[in-house]
Amino acid sequence: MSIKITRRSAVLGLTSTLATPALLSAQQYVPSQPAAQRRNASSFVTQDWRDHFDTLGKGVIVADTSSRALHYWNAEGTDYRVYPTSVPMTDELTKRGYTKIVRKKVGPTWTPTKSMRERDPSLPEFMEAGAGNPLGTHAMYLSWPAYLIHGTHDTRKIGRRSSSGCIGLYNEKIAELFAITPVGTQVRVL
């Protein structure tokens, strides 16, 4: 009995052999794996606005830096949305607590803070709105100076510790959130 090995069967055999370890490791994924070992993925933790605020007021946002997710509820509590986010690079850069949206801007300009420029002297003193601007297409300013909820043009940052203190969303998601979030919305950063 003679077995004819064609180029096609050799390639298919090699491909299935190489793919087997990847398939096996994918089957070994453990959801309870510590967050520090996960890569660029949000592991949303369910939130309830009542655990953080007495009333909805104009609406509420809970930015959960541990699960890298932003939770939004409208003033009536009928619209609940969850967005994946980027979060501050380190705990030292993370301001936690209660604040609110005090201003909104489409096409924000960017002025890096003094501490940002000390960490990275190559940063510009000022940047106009546009494709290279790290604040993306929309920004919502918090009552804490220099802290924002904003978009990003660099989609690799979402789901990661990558900001200098702000909460970042995909540009299309910040545009959606921007449209439904009034100035005065209560915010809690966990």
Rank of each mutant, 00 (worst) to 15 (best):
Q28H: 03
V30C: 00
A22Y: 15
I3V: 14
L12W: 12
V30R: 10
A22L: 15
G13S: 07
L18T: 11
V11W: 07
A19K: 02
V30D: 13
A22I: 12
I3A: 05
T15I: 14
V30G: 00
I3N: 05
S9G: 04
L14T: 10
P31A: 09
T6D: 09
R8M: 07
A19M: 15
T17C: 10
S16T: 06
L12T: 06
P31C: 02
R8E: 13
V11G: 02
P21G: 08
Q28L: 10
P31L: 02
K4M: 03
L24A: 11
T6N: 14
Y29T: 10
L23Y: 14
L18E: 12
R7W: 01
Y29M: 03
A10H: 02
S2P: 04
L18H: 07
T20G: 05
S25V: 13
S16H: 01
S2W: 08
A22H: 10
T20Y: 13
L18I: 15
L12H: 06
Q27G: 14
P21S: 10
R7G: 04
V30L: 02
R8T: 15
S9C: 08
T20K: 06
A19P: 04
I5W: 15
A22T: 14
K4G: 00
L23T: 14
A22K: 05
L24K: 04
P31S: 02
L23A: 13
S9V: 11
Q27Y: 02
T20M: 13
T20I: 11
A22Q: 04
S16I: 07
S25R: 12
S25T: 12
T15Q: 01
L18W: 06
P21C: 13
R7Y: 03
L18A: 15
A19R: 05
T17K: 01
A22S: 13
